[in-house]
Amino acid sequence: MAQVTLDRVRKTYPNGFEAVQPCSVEIPDGELVVLVGPSGCGKSTLLRMIAGLEDITDGALSIGTDVVNDKDPADRNIAMVFQNYALYPHMSVAKNMGYGLKNRGASKAEIDAKVQEAARILNLGDYLDRRPSQLSGGQRQRVAMGRAIVRDPELFLFDEPLSNLDAKLRNQMRIEIRALQQRLGVTSVYVTHDQVEAMTMADRIIVLNAGRVEQIGTPTEIYERPASTFVAGFMGAPPMNLMTAALVSGQLQVGGETKLPLTPPAVATDEVLVGYRPEDVRLGGDGSVVLDVQIIEELGANRLLHGQLGGQAFSISIGKDEQAQVGPQPITLPQDRVHFFHPERGTRL
């Protein structure tokens, strides 16, 4: 068990491309941190730097109390679960799990005991003699987990471990991984591009965009107080509505005519970005704000109404018991749920 500290860790490739801009974060012992972001945002690079598979251009990385920048992956006392599992195809499940221990010179009895223990935790007892090719996707995923836990590492690294599974299995494995991590209490870094995984599994989330840290916070903080329009748009499905509103004599206006009954933030710009989560907007109201509903999406548990507000795309989510039709509908925009962002920089106001 150990805490992990990144101090201005940076990655620049030889061709000059800056994959990860200086990133500082402290991960306390036992915490599961999720790195989330779109493809190419540098989240995998950051993880691979922690693993030691990628050189760190600048900055210091410590696991426990030691700076491990120049240590080999094998000497960092970490374990990694890969997206495609990376099981050794020619070895049995038991050998796959025990290989790391064997290389560290553990005795046969010790390897056996640890593999048995891991297999018991992961319900793999009946499969120890099988080859990876004889297992289903979920079972392979478990073997990859088993390979990580037999070593008692100080740090787990997960590189999009669930993206090769189907949706149902993904939900199930998500819960299993989280439960296992909490039970073992091992510090973990988990990379995903799936914001649902990030929200549900993380103690804390690091949102990355184009190699830059956009926001670090608990899932609730990230969701309730996104630090930028990027975070607001990335976390949450459907994403937050973002409208450009003009500030005309202390009044917010959308599309030239619709006045928004909101107190604007104190800024020097003549425009602001107004953000609303679809579920924070209520149907019905005094008619001052009208949503022109064009499409209704039925999701079972709720309905999504997509339409236009003052000429800009706007979506709201309503409960399954509420009625809705296509056409103009009055809506209410609560003042306490609004998010304001800077129109150019995209930062929270």
């Binding site: 598979l53 990694m80 990376a86 050794y88 290989y99 790391g100």
Partner: peptide, 21 residues
């Protein structure tokens, strides 16, 4: 796949072990 090499590196297999094992 590259991941196999990386998994072996993390598992502590040096160049010779990776080749043979």
């Amino acid at each position: 796949p590259e991941e196999l090499v990386e998994a072996a590196r993390i598992d502590g297999a040096g160049p010779i072990k990776f080749f043979i094992d």
